[in-house]
Every structure is written in C-alpha cells, then in structure tokens.
C-alpha cells in the first residue's frame, strides 16, 4: 500500500514530503525513543511517534524510513518541519492516539513483525 493511500484512508495530514508519497509501505514501527529507532528501525518502515523535535527527521533520513506520523495532533517544531521539507521526508499528523492509529494501520495490512 502506498503512503498516499494510507493518508487517504486514515485522514492523515501532510506537513512535509509531498513528493515522496508514492512509496510503498508494508511495515510500521512505533517508538518515542531515538536510540530504539536507530537500533531497530528498518528501511521502509512508517514511524509512529509523539516526538516532534528535529532529531526524528535525522533518524528517519539515516534509516531510510518511509515517513513519520505524529500522533495525538502533535505538531512538528519549526526546525523539524524545515528539515523534513529539505530532506523530503514525509511528515504526517494524526489526531488519534498511538494505539488507535497503529490498530487501524495494522487493520490495513501493515505489520510490525521484524522479518
């Protein structure tokens, strides 16, 4: 499923990275700890987090993640937004809490298994 389809199905709002929404996404990863994502995030993962600071973009870029979804209507900090735009990392916002959003993503067929 492409990122664009997911955005459409779950009503996510796009804050940055419009040009990179064609990418196929099969897996999700949920964490609010940078070190965890650095260690365990896999290329192509859609990252669900509450963290809004710019380090998230750096981590997403470094690990080749498909994008970042901020939950609970958290808005990215200005420098996070700027960095995401510059690096063309999709930065999305959902008003749902993490559990709910992940549940729905899982329902759409995304898996969290680390195969």
């Amino acid at each position: 499923m492409t990122l664009a389809e997911i955005i459409d199905r779950l009503g996510l709002q796009v804050r940055a990275g419009d040009a990179a929404l064609r990418r196929d996404v099969e897996r999700g990863y949920a964490s609010d700890l940078m070190s965890d994502v650095i260690a365990n995030g896999l290329e192509g993962d859609l990252w669900i987090t509450l963290q809004t600071h710019q380090n998230t973009v750096a981590v997403a870029s470094m690990k080749g993640l498909a994008g970042i979804v901020l939950v609970n209507s958290r808005e990215p900090e200005p420098d996070t937004l700027e960095k995401a735009r510059r690096e063309s990392i999709p930065l999305l916002v959902s008003e749902l809490p993490a559990f709910e959003l992940i549940g729905r993503l899982h329902g759409l067929g995304l898996t969290g298994l680390r195969a």
Partner: peptide
C-alpha cells in the same frame, strides 16, 4: 508551549523531556 523543551537527549531517552 507544548513540545518546547531544553532537555538533553539522554533525558528524552528516559521518557521525559518531550516539552
């Protein structure tokens, strides 16, 4: 302001400092 933080990264890694 929600999300504004001056906490260092090691604090964030402990689950705090998210502003």
């Amino acid at each position: 302001q929600p999300g504004y933080s001056t906490a260092p990264d090691w604090v964030r890694e402990l689950g705090f400092g998210a502003g």
